[in-house]
Structure formats: structure tokens, C-alpha cells
Amino acid sequence: MALLSIEDLSLHYVTSRGVARAVDGASLSVERGQVVGLVGESGCGKTTLARAVTGVIPRSARIVGGKIMFDGMDLVTASRRDANRLRWREISFVPQSAMNSLDPVYRVGTQLMEVLTDRGGMDRRKAKARAAELFEMVGIGVDRLHDYPHQFSGGMRQRAAIALGLALSPKLVIADEPVTALDVVVQRQVLDLIRRLQQELSLSVIIVTHDISVVAYLCDAVAVMYAGKVVEVGRAADVLNAPDHPYTMGLYNAFPDLERSQRRLTPIAGAPPSLIDPPSGCRFEPRCPFSIAKCGEEPPLEEIRAGHRAACWRTGDAAELREKAADVATWEQREGVGA
């Protein structure tokens, strides 16, 4: 059984301009010890989906349907107490900007101790030893426990945030754009750290990222989100090497590789649609270079091969589309369409 399985989850934001369907019937599952990437452009609902798993969603957000099954318990319907018991002990979070997510007025060590004693039930002596162990694990000198967050460099803050996330040996870690705020060299170091720790501790990890190269580097599986829906999901190597959804093909062209960045980058023209009033039918259709009449209807997320599913009417022509998609001109033709 999967450690986490999100089934048909819908989450809406109630705003003054209307109801934004940020997550609209998304499904995703994470096996034990598996690293799953959640990719898409900003505003596609990936962060919202990931944060829903932590149980902390913005005040204006409502879960209107679906399940989040974690270790046999549905977090959507679970009581506050039951859900709270899992927080940080079973499911922890590594934020994008460690600067804003560490409390500026407490020493980093104090913030670690808080979690270890308040949530881990350790006494101070044990907690101190554990804090030192955690810092060693993420490669920060133990003496830096006495520093305040603003005294850390960006990379160190991110490491500290990882240490904080691993403090109570959770089963699942959700990392929201864990390296986006860092410069390239440090990005690589932090990704290596995540990979090493994931293997040593056989963690399950969800990595939210807009950067497909991060997925290629770290993930076993990947789910591609577009406009609140999962449009393609499968083994990472599969999805990246042989994408079936035109959006995935487009994303692949849009990002540099961590390994080889000589490839010419072509952004997908236009922007994701409004989630308040999304297009009927396939939501990517307005920006898709391969759209056909059929795309006015909404495609289901169908299994194409074992463990690989995509929501597109043209999966049958996928091989041909991939060839065309590799040609930069294909994407340039559509320029200005969805803008």
C-alpha cells in the first residue's frame, strides 16, 4: 500500500473575485522510500496540493472533495487531534524560503529544540544531542546552533530548514521548491544533500518544483500539474524521456539541464489560465501547438502504459508530437496565442 495517496482532491480559494479552483480533482500517490516530483508553472496548484498534505492551508482555502490517505488514515476527515498528531512527526515540510520560515527572533538551535521537546517529547539533554546530530547530518558546524537565522547564508538556512524537517524522523517530507531561492552552485549541494539523506533514511519525499531538471536529478516518479489538474504522471525517466502530454514536452524545452545547459530554451507562449474561470475542455488547449477539435472536450487521465498516465486526446500520436515538440519552431508558431 502507498504511504500517501491523494484521491481526486479538490481545493478552492474563496476570493473577492470568485472561487478559484486551485486544485481540481487531483490524484497522486507516494510509495514508501519514493521521491515524487510535482512540477508545473507557478499558479498551477502544485504548492497548494503539497501544502494540503501538511494540513495547513490558507484561511481562504477549502477542501471541497476527495481524500488524502496517509498510512491508512484520511487526513481530510480526520479529527483535529488525530491530524495534529501526525504533524512534523510523520509529515514534515521544507520551505522554499528558509529566511522567512525561520522565526527571526529565536536562535536556530532554539527553534530545533522547540520541535524536539514540544513535539518529540524529548528532555532537554536528549534534544540537545539530537540537535547537534541533525546539524552534523546536514553539514553545519554544531557551534552555529547558537546563531540567529539572519546570521546564516542562504545555503546554510536551507540546510537548517532540512535539519528542522528531519528532526523527528518523519516518514514523509514535503519540500516546496527547496532550492529555487539559491544560486546554482549551492542548489547542487543542497540537492545532493537531499538525495543522500533520502537514501540514508529511506524517506518518502514530495518535491514541488517548476524546474524539470530537479526532477530529473532526484525523483523516482513525477506528476505534472496544469491549471489545478494532474495532466501526466509516471516514472520520472519515462515521463521525461517520452512525455505523452504536450505540456510536459513544452516544460522540458523551457528549462536548462543541471548537467548540460547548452540546449536552447523555449518558453511556452502565454500563461496558465485563470483558475476562477478555466477553459472548458482541455485546459492546455489555448496554448497547445497540437490542439485539435476534440480538445474542446476534457480528456481523462488515462493509463497509456503500465504506471504511466496522461490526460490528452492525442496520446496515440505521442511519438510524432515529441518529434515536432523538439523543434523550437513549433512553439514559436503559437507565440502570442494565449498571451
Binding site: R87, S92, F93, P95, L102, E114
Partner: peptide
């Protein structure tokens, strides 16, 4: 609305800790 208060919630800290130890301590400055 600050991210570190959201984090405190994710950590499952008690409401008292969240409001007094983190939010109020910062709002007090």
C-alpha cells in the same frame, strides 16, 4: 500571515505557542 507562523502550524505546535511564542513575540518589537 508570515511564513514562520505557517511553519509553526505545520509543526503542530500548540495554538498558545504559535500565538504567544512566535506571533506575539515578533509583533511586540
Amino acid at each position: 500571515e508570515d511564513e514562520f507562523v505557517t511553519m509553526a502550524r505545520m509543526k503542530g505546535l500548540s495554538e498558545w505557542s504559535i500565538v504567544m511564542r512566535h506571533a506575539a513575540r515578533n509583533a511586540l518589537l
